[in-house]
Amino acid sequence: MIRYILRRLAWALPTMLIVTFLVYVALRIGTNPVESYKRSNPRVTPEKIKQYIDINGLDPNYVLGYFRWLNNFVTGNWPRSIKGSREVWPALKDAMANTLRLGIAATVVGIIFGLIFGVLASIRPGGKRDIAINTGAFVGISIPPYISAILLQLLFAVYWQRWFGSSLFPTSGVYPAGHTGFDLFLMLKFMALPTIVVAIQIVATYSRYLRSSLLDVLNSDYMRTARSKGISERRVLIHHGMRNALIPIVTLAALDLGSIVGGLIISENIFSYPGMGLYFLKSFGDGDFPLLMPWMVIIVASILVFNLIADISYAWLDPRIRLE
């Protein structure tokens, strides 16, 4: 097991290099960092531009430039953002903390409800409850996150205020303007709507996954054996059924990181929640190369880590799978 993990980690490094190289090239072609630097700072001197090119590794030769960028990145010699010349790491760190909070909240809420609905639907397949949950999940999948965000905002913030005097949930930010310090209740209130938007997608996806996976398991021979042994129905369902049904789900959960991050980006943008998504959209819009590259590195790294977690937990849940 440990050897497997070590080998996977050893593989992760070259993968990381190749992917970040591709991202580097794509960003250079797509956002044209030097031009956007000049656009943001119209009166910049040629020396400054040369300095900017040097520290960002924007050599005309992509391979050479990439390694120059990599060298600066690894040694912690990070360039400042092109707009306002801010330090990158503090901004990135805050964004990461905010997104992690939102992402974890949405994932936990989403998976809990998804599992509950999935189990409820699979108890009597084809029944009224199954059909209702299935249709609901289908509607949930078909609603893009920005649409649920708009409608929730309209209902709970704008119209709630018209009807009842004050809005139920605030629509933007982490804290009200001017607030300092930590306040859990206030924070949760501000997180409510963005969390719901992301969670809707997760609930809809996972209740369907779990339903089909549970149905596969429920019809299998070992379930019949477990029942015939006289174990209580609850133990059969949870101990024998759930564990096996969760195997495919766990992999999917780890691999779904991309779509969760995608939902987060949209949700953060609409609710002006200062996380990774807003960070990306802003810096992409400005063509802010110094801000974009570290963001990309973090995303690529987390995708690789989650892939690894998926494989390991797969083997842990299903002893028949041998990692080698």
Binding site: V19, L22, G258, G262, I265, I299, N307
Partner: peptide, 9 residues
């Protein structure tokens, strides 16, 4: 690779 990345990005 393409499918692992967030769609919008």
């Amino acid at each position: 690779l393409f499918l692992a990345f967030p769609f919008l990005v």
